[in-house]
Amino acid sequence: MNIFYGTGVAMVTPFQADGQVDYEGLKNLIEHLIDGGVQYLVSLGTTGESATLNADERKQVWAFTAKVVNKRVPLVAGIGGNNTHEVVEQVKEFNTEGYDAILSSSPHYNKPTQEGIYQHYKAIAQAAPLPIILYNVPSRTGSTIAAETTVRLARDFKNIIAIKEASGNFDLFNQLMRDKPEEFMVISGDDPVTLPMMALGAVGVISVIGNALPKPLSAMVQLLLNNDYKQAQKIHSSLIEFTRLMFVQGNPAGAKNALKHLGVCGETLRLPLVPVSSGIAEAIKKETQKLA
């Protein structure tokens, strides 16, 4: 599954001013990312505001995305939640045409034990028509997938092929890299630490900042895959302030503001998310113009 080596982007979902999905903006974004050299795309992850789309909207976005991409790059669908039965049913019903894997975050809010997390993913793995990428993001879910649990899942289910790791916990990274099966992939889920994670053996990133700046990010990740850390460090350093601005008032508000400045799509979000402040917007504009 080395189609997931390199740069993946967790795409935003553009909305029109009235809050409806902006399919023209989504098409523009897809072309922007493919032209920018990314290896694969993730549709309706957390960055895609999937929590505020209803079931019909999600199906329409997935189908539209697959149609526009037209198999030019691999596609991943974000399907997760804190009701295991509901997630399993969504996975069973998912139209896999054009898609290569499912990204599924660990259950939020419930705060399950490690055994609960294991059983949740076991149920998904047994039902899934596509390979599964786990997603560990404790800042959003309220619980962590321990390294031991990830390794256990990777060994027990061959269709669990990778984890998007966004815990920021390097003790966990170290243990995971040491103990995981050789073919199991660790993917950075946190833009600021992609470089050090790849130094430990991660195979790439599923990025937020890549929505706006796919070219420099893809170039950095490719350099890292080629073990050219000196040149990669230069790009990493140039992106530090932009990356900070992308998250300072929440994701995907920062990314959507940058995309607005680039003319790719608007910055409308669905409540409870709101656009960045005017001061942050001005700072994002300056960094975007400098780096794009």
Rank of each mutant, 00 (worst) to 15 (best):
G37Q: 07
H32R: 00
E182F: 08
Y229W: 12
T194S: 11
R140V: 15
G189N: 02
L195Y: 04
V248P: 03
K260S: 10
I163C: 05
T13L: 14
V264A: 03
P252C: 05
I3Q: 09
K286I: 15
D100V: 10
G201V: 14
I145E: 08
Y118M: 07
G204Q: 06
D191P: 01
K27T: 15
D171I: 15
V88N: 02
S237C: 11
H85G: 13
I132P: 07
N70M: 10
Y118I: 10
N174Q: 11
L176W: 01
A202I: 07
S43D: 06
H120Y: 04
P107V: 11
Q249A: 04
L130Q: 00
I132H: 00
G201R: 07
L291I: 15
E148M: 03
G98T: 12
Q126D: 14
I79K: 00
L224V: 08
V87S: 02
L153P: 13
V91N: 02
A253T: 11
R72L: 08
S50Y: 07
Q175A: 12
H108R: 09
G168R: 05
G210D: 06
M197S: 11
H261P: 05
Y5L: 12
T65W: 11
I145N: 09
G263I: 09
S167T: 13
T65K: 01
